[in-house]
Amino acid sequence: MDVKETVRLWSVRRLYGTADRTVRALDGVTASFHPGTLTAVMGPSGSGKSTLLHCAAGLDRPTEGKVVIDGTDLGELDETGLTLLRRERVGFVFQAFNLVSALTAEQNVALPLKLAGRPIAPAEARAALAEVGLAERAGHRPSGLSGGEQQRVAIARALITRPAVLFADEPTGQLDTKTSRQVLGMLRDLVDNQAQTVIMVTHDPVTASYADRVLFLADGRLVDEFTTGVTAEAVAARMANLEAVASC
């Protein structure tokens, strides 16, 4: 392939030491994510999806292995360096608790730029909100926004720095079907129209069907990958199989 990867993981291992045993949340994952693609990471609960996302996004450090984002090896950065990289090159949307409750939607969106000490035109944050269809909600605080609106504000905030990659951990996990579709449609448009790279964790086959590619995780290992024929039915069938194996 001639296109350079936006995110690349080499044999990433993440162990959690608890009092009685060690949990291998990630057990040697190697994967790469190309620009302008939407990838879904799927797997049963506890298979290491979130851990993979956190390691790939520089929110957490792998116990072993290497992560490169946009040409930068995360292992070589200290805490501040990692923070700056997240601020400049990476965007996130979590399942919930994405917004600072004391700030308005507009202020939340402007936050990464403010933290970077960049001068920000008021229009910039408003434009970002308009892009997610929330121009008229700019002055509202999170407590006055619905779940779907909060997630859209979170997406606007994640995109304001024009990041190389957008990570989303079950972004529709707490939304109803209709709102989910809206949010997913928006992510799809970003990929198609602006060549945004998006990596999304989900355990819902319908959500995964919006992706170009689906990676399947089980017990911290990559066990399968769909690059073509990503339909809800196919994904659901593969998942059912994985879950059956997991429950044995």
Partner: peptide, 16 residues
Amino acid sequence: RREFGLLRAVGATPRQ
């Protein structure tokens, strides 16, 4: 703590 965690996630350095 959660608010500070969020700020750290979206790009606030420990110093900030």
